[in-house]
Simulated assay, not measured.
Amino acid sequence: MWDLLLVAAASGLAGCVDAIVGGGGLILVPALFATYPAAPPATLMGTNKGGAIWGTAWAAGQFARRVQLRWAALGPAVGAALLGSLVGAWTLTLVHAESLRRALPFVLAAILLYTLVRKDLGRVHAPRLAGRAEALTASAIGLAIGFYDGFFGPGTGSFFVFLFVRVLGYDFLNASAAAKLLNTATNAAALALFITKGHIWWQVAALLAAANVAGSLLGTRLALRHGAGFVRGVFIVVVSLLILKTGWDAFGH
């Protein structure tokens, strides 16, 4: 019972953070591995996806009702993200991700530095592209980061947010809303793979899903109430923690 309460609390906090800017896996995945150290890693990852996808999908729905999403561009991007995630998961069965694991902290550090230097980045929503150009660019982002999510995963939501801000000119609030749509698709692809392989604890995943949605509700309300500046601040904190976590995973042991 205490184990379930612990992972449920972690799932709720993860849902809140993930709804604001992504990066909920930074909280929930370590909690699952610490609570169930003897469990197969694939089963813990599948259970994580089984719980987290509901909070992400809930946040996407809430943002869609309150933020004017650019569906003409994001619709194709969702399909591209789904395809990219499937291809990435398949590629992972063929090659090793060690080099990417070691490069990730440096990529995240570059993103953090750029965000800190460009203090105006993502504060104003001023899309740079429109029509087919925007759809193609958003789809390219979806395909690339979707592949990364299926192949490796940490920081997927933050990568989506940064690229929508930097490349497409969205503010952090609109970028976070768009990221939820694409992240739901990539999570769905990964979850489907884990289910077909039998790597999911359904009872635990159901509890995690309920807690994740509750946290997502809180996070979505905070983001919508406080706007792009608040989301930017949370983004900086989450990316900083991701740098520490991925750096430790790559070089700490």
Rank of each mutant, 00 (worst) to 15 (best):
residue 55 G to E: 01
residue 250 A to T: 07
residue 146 G to H: 13
residue 115 T to V: 15
residue 218 L to D: 00
residue 198 G to H: 14
residue 13 L to K: 00
residue 156 T to K: 01
residue 114 Y to P: 00
residue 176 S to E: 04
residue 6 L to E: 00
residue 179 A to H: 13
residue 124 V to M: 00
residue 135 A to S: 10
residue 202 W to A: 14
residue 215 G to K: 01
residue 195 I to L: 15
residue 1 M to L: 04
residue 229 G to P: 00
residue 221 R to W: 09
residue 81 A to R: 07
residue 78 V to K: 01
residue 174 N to K: 11
residue 242 L to F: 10
residue 47 T to F: 03
residue 21 V to A: 13
residue 18 D to N: 15
residue 15 G to I: 07
residue 233 G to N: 06
residue 197 K to A: 14
residue 70 R to L: 08
residue 171 D to E: 03
residue 144 A to P: 02
residue 161 V to M: 09
residue 124 V to R: 06
residue 64 A to C: 14
residue 200 I to R: 01
residue 28 L to R: 02
residue 160 F to D: 05
residue 13 L to G: 00
residue 221 R to A: 15
residue 131 G to A: 06
residue 69 L to S: 01
residue 78 V to T: 04
residue 126 A to I: 00
residue 71 W to Q: 06
residue 198 G to A: 05
residue 250 A to V: 09
residue 19 A to L: 09
residue 153 G to I: 04
residue 94 L to E: 11
residue 252 G to Q: 02
residue 147 F to T: 14
residue 171 D to G: 07
residue 16 C to A: 15
residue 238 V to I: 13
residue 71 W to F: 15
residue 100 L to F: 09
residue 89 A to V: 05
residue 253 H to S: 11
residue 57 A to E: 06
residue 24 G to W: 12
residue 246 T to Q: 12
residue 189 A to H: 10
residue 159 F to T: 00
residue 226 H to M: 10
residue 169 G to N: 06
residue 7 V to S: 03
residue 211 A to L: 12
residue 73 A to N: 01
residue 11 S to R: 08
residue 195 I to R: 07
residue 153 G to F: 01
residue 94 L to A: 13
residue 64 A to F: 11
residue 90 W to A: 15
residue 235 F to K: 11
residue 203 Q to S: 12
residue 28 L to S: 12
residue 120 D to P: 00
residue 93 T to F: 01
residue 138 A to S: 11
residue 68 Q to W: 02
residue 158 S to Q: 11
residue 125 H to D: 15
residue 211 A to F: 14
residue 46 G to K: 11
residue 29 V to Y: 02
residue 21 V to L: 00
residue 43 T to S: 14
residue 30 P to K: 12
residue 228 A to K: 08
residue 47 T to A: 04
residue 25 G to K: 04
residue 203 Q to L: 05
residue 230 F to K: 08
residue 168 L to C: 07
residue 224 L to W: 05
residue 225 R to G: 14
residue 32 L to G: 02
residue 124 V to N: 06
residue 122 G to R: 10
residue 78 V to E: 03
residue 138 A to M: 08
residue 45 M to Q: 08
residue 219 G to L: 09
residue 220 T to A: 14
residue 17 V to L: 15
residue 148 Y to H: 10
residue 98 E to W: 04
residue 74 L to V: 03
residue 46 G to I: 03
residue 57 A to C: 09
residue 152 F to I: 06
residue 166 R to Y: 04
residue 168 L to I: 11
residue 200 I to C: 05
